[in-house]
Design a protein around this nucleic acid. Structure first.
Length: 438
RNA sequence: CGGAGCGUAGCGCAGUCUGGUAGCGCACUACACUGGGGGUGUAGGGGUCGUGGGUUCAAAUCCCGCCGCUCCGACCA
């Protein structure tokens, strides 16, 4: 993409309403624009990141055997009356009336909808287990939206639902999702610590929030300090193996969200305790037959009896993750994208595109990068070097390549790593080779 | 939902107290100089001062209503 043609409205100054780094940087780097409180438009650069995060999420869901579908944003109130949540949910649910006077709502989540689909279609225990997910926009009329996309009213969420015959099966599904979440966040360059969270109506230990430690997190969390240095690299995994050992390894040490903290344990941990603020990027939850029973989602069991299925739901805040990644990875100059979620891999800066030699070298390198399938944003604008450097740092692409008259005298370009700041002069071919490897 | 603010050019702000022809910086346009980390100069363009009403000879400024946004706290499957 040529920057001269790209829609990338960057801001030199920070809009006054943005208080935390990710919100400021998302506005300044031209990722989003606010529409109303907690509702945002995604501009081209921001949308590329959102799609990258969505893609990783999708790949990892598919990998564990969860199947993608798509449910609507607008749901009939009747479904929610069945589960009893139409009244229970309160003013956080956006309620709509259609032209016939029917009560509708903009979905804050989809348990009712998926349960209805399931009960209409699945009859036998032989059809279990089933794992289904979708990635869809949600709306929750938050009392106090804030921090940009971190707590928006409209947000993109991956929500998955599991259906099993019994509790053992539900645990298998839960474990698959647990492991897949470790991989998903790890691939995004995040350390998301699985923390024991508020249990569902069933109780037990089958509710975890995946939390990123950040000063700007919304709630206070606590964990063993070993989590901070734990290796988050996504190991290959066979989802049909017994996953419990993996789960045990990641739940052996203490880690708890605000509601679940235990003063006695924390006292015993002493210097090993880390208390900080956290951003919730995922939440997995087992809720048994709460919805299946209320809504009559049953299957015929092996002995011919009707059994209400065991369910769980599993959420990832896709749009929130864009903000969370920035909170976890930025500096004074701007965003530092982890490579897997970067909107482009390379920012190619042509310092003097109106000079014949620079134009030839810059355009040529741009074409060669594209030929190799490398995503590159090419700053081919005529303008000052300082502006180009500053904007490229702001939008935070992992690699910068600088083509300028000074280097070209010896046939060299400069390659800069955004994260480390390391720069090296090398030939165009060497730079090309290096970027192809990365 | 309690408490507190803010709304003036695309962005950041001053002007409001004490009413008298709407300003500054950045950005934008043109030209010149400049040219490897958000340059310099000259000349320009752009605002029904959130909105509706009231007071007044005169309202960004005073009064009342409404709308929008933000912050602190409570809340957050």
């Amino acid at each position: 993409m040529r920057l001269s043609q790209y829609f990338l409205p960057t801001l030199k100054e920070t809009p006054s309403e943005a208080r935390i780094a990710s919100h400021r940087l998302m506005l300044r780097a031209g990722l989003i624009r606010q529409s109303s409180a907690g509702v945002y438009s995604w501009l081209p650069l921001g949308l590329r990141v959102l799609k990258k995060i969505e893609r990783i999420t999708r790949q990892e869901q598919d990998a564990l055997g969860c199947q993608e579908m798509l449910m609507p944003t607008i749901q009939p109130a009747a479904l929610w009356r069945e589960s009893g949540r139409y009244d229970a949910y309160g003013p956080e649910m956006l309620r709509i009336t259609d032209r016939h006077g029917r009560d509708m709502l903009y979905g804050p989540t989809n348990e009712e909808q998926i349960t209805e689909i399931f009960r209409e279609t699945v009859r036998s225990y032989k059809d279990l287990p089933k794992l289904l997910y979708h990635i869809q926009w949600k709306f929750r009329d938050e009392v106090r939206p804030r921090f940009g996309v971190m707590r928006g009213r409209e947000f993109l969420m991956k929500d998955a639902y599991s259906f099993d015959l019994d509790v053992q099966g539900a645990r298998r599904s839960y474990n698959k999702m647990f492991v897949s979440y470790l991989r998903t966040f790890g691939r995004m360059g995040l350390k998301a610590i699985p923390m024991r969270a508020e249990s569902g109506p069933i109780g037990g230990d089958m509710s975890h929030e995946f939390v990123i430690l950040a000063d700007t997190g919304e709630s206070e969390v606590a964990c063993h300090k070993d989590f901070v240095d734990m290796d988050w690299a996504a190991a290959d995994i066979d989802y049909e193996d017994d996953l419990q050992p993996v789960i045990d390894r990641f739940t052996a040490k203490y880690a708890a969200t605000d509601d679940e903290r235990d003063p006695d344990i924390e006292k015993s941990l002493a210097a090993d305790l880390v208390v900080g603020r956290g951003i919730e990027v995922g939440h997995i939850f087992y809720f048994g037959d709460k919805y299946s029973r209320a809504m009559g989602a049953t299957v015929t069991g092996p002995d011919g009896e009707e059994i209400a299925v065991e369910m769980g739901s599993y959420g990832i805040g896709v749009s929130r993750l864009v903000g969370a990644v920035i909170e976890a990875s930025h500096d004074d100059g701007g965003i530092i994208w982890p490579q897997p979620v970067a909107p482009f891999l390379v920012g190619l800066i042509n310092l003097k595109p109106d000079d014949a030699a620079c134009a030839a070298a810059g355009d040529g390198l741009y074409q060669k990068l594209r030929d190799r399938g490398i995503e590159v944003l090419y700053d081919d604008r005529v303008g000052r070097a300082g502006v180009k450097f500053a904007e490229m740092d702001l939008i935070g692409l992992p690699w910068q390549v600088v083509v300028g008259p000074r280097g070209l005298k010896t046939g060299a370009v400069e390659l800069k790593n955004r994260r480390s700041g390391d720069k090296e002069e090398l030939s165009i071919d060497r730079a090309l080779a290096k970027l192809t490897e990365s």
